[in-house]
């Protein structure tokens, strides 16, 4: 792997981020509605008296710079974004968007990254066994079950899991990420986190495992037809060595590509899981920001989601040559 390769990948990363920032800037401004007016309406609807509403709107618009020309708003936005100053949240005023996101981020990373990796690992092994002629017969019967799982959306699975394991027998908490008002960093605190994270994690694993298994099965069938598999068998290698070193090792390559993208999009993909379980992550934050037309927060979250996709693709680009030697010389 040469330095120019690494530099090119990093340059690509920044180009993607800049495009995302631009789109991110334009899209919310195309939507109808005015953020300050939205906040005022909220206050009004709660029966609060707001005097001089027009003045307040004007004052806020001035404060958030919504009256400046678009190009000025844009340049300011790009500059601020690149320094991770994503503005002030309107609905959680005066907290900054960055601090909101940084509070939510560890929850999402903890929940989604771990569940996605578990789903990936489990699904890949099961998928490989589905295609492997030497695996026991009962493994074959998993296939239709996995297809059904991969077809059910995350949030529906979340609701089913919630009902079957929490509401009905009362084994698990209905939502939240921890007991009490703040997580504690003791052994008990950790167990409590696992206890709360189990159901949302389970629904993500269940929803993901079918996808990974079916993808792996397809890749595996392709690899099993290759000449080097016939030769591996001819060489008298043990089935275990052929399975792991020859078949799975090669079939995993396309899977890893999908993993990087899945890790990036997992955050947005499971907004509804976080909502269903009241899990205080990015998805939940985004859901609330959308409800209250909180421009800056929506933009901030969207920016972070793009950042995670771009980052995971960057990381993939940098580690993929280690997995597939054919990529190394380009």
């Amino acid at each position: 792997m040469s330095w120019s390769y690494v530099l090119r990948r990093i340059a690509m990363f920044f180009a993607v981020v800049l495009c995302a920032v631009t789109v991110n800037f334009i899209v919310p401004r195309l939507a109808p509605g005015d953020p300050t007016a939205a906040v005022l309406e909220q206050l009004l609807s709660r029966g609060q008296q707001v005097e001089g509403a027009a003045d307040i709107v004007a004052a806020y618009r001035a404060r958030f710079g919504l009256d400046d020309p678009m190009i000025v708003q844009y340049l300011r936005y790009v500059g601020n974004t690149l320094t991770l100053d994503l503005g002030t949240s309107i609905s959680y005023f005066p907290q900054s968007v960055t601090s909101q996101i940084l509070t939510a981020l560890p929850w999402t990373i903890g929940l989604l990254a771990i569940s996605t990796v578990i789903a990936f690992g489990l699904g890949s092994v099961v998928g490989a066994l589905l295609a492997w002629p030497g695996s026991p017969h009962f493994v074959r019967s998993f296939a239709p079950f996995l297809m059904v799982l991969s077809a059910i959306p995350y949030y529906l699975l979340a609701l089913i899991v919630l009902y079957v394991l929490a509401i009905w027998p009362g084994w698990f908490p209905l939502g939240g990420a921890y007991s009490g008002s703040a997580p504690s960093f003791s052994l008990n605190g950790l167990l409590d986190l696992l206890y709360h994270g189990f159901l949302p994690g389970l629904s993500i694993v269940l929803a993901g495992v079918g996808f990974w298994a079916l993808g792996m099965r397809g890749a595996m069938i392709g690899v099993l037809g290759e000449d080097y598999l016939t030769l591996a068998e001819g060489k008298g290698l043990s089935p275990r060595r052929i399975f792991f070193g020859y078949a799975m090792r090669n079939a995993l390559l396309p899977q890893v590509t999908s993993l990087a993208i899945a890790l990036g999009t997992a955050a947005s993909g499971s907004v509804l899981v976080e909502v269903a379980f009241n899990y205080p992550g990015i998805g939940y934050l985004l859901f609330n920001a959308l409800k209250s037309s909180d421009y800056f927060l929506i933009q901030g979250v969207a920016f972070f989601l793009v950042l995670t996709v771009a980052l995971s693709v960057l990381v993939l680009d940098l580690i993929y040559p280690l997995l597939d030697p054919r990529i190394r010389r380009q």
Binding site: D227, Y228, T230, L231, G234, G236, N250, D324
Partner: peptide
């Protein structure tokens, strides 16, 4: 498994893909 390769070895058709690429 013991018999293969120790008694009979194969040079496969299309040796281009006969080696594990990774």
């Amino acid at each position: 498994r013991k018999f293969r390769w120790s008694e009979v070895a194969l040079i496969p058709q299309g040796a281009m893909n006969a080696l594990n690429p990774v």
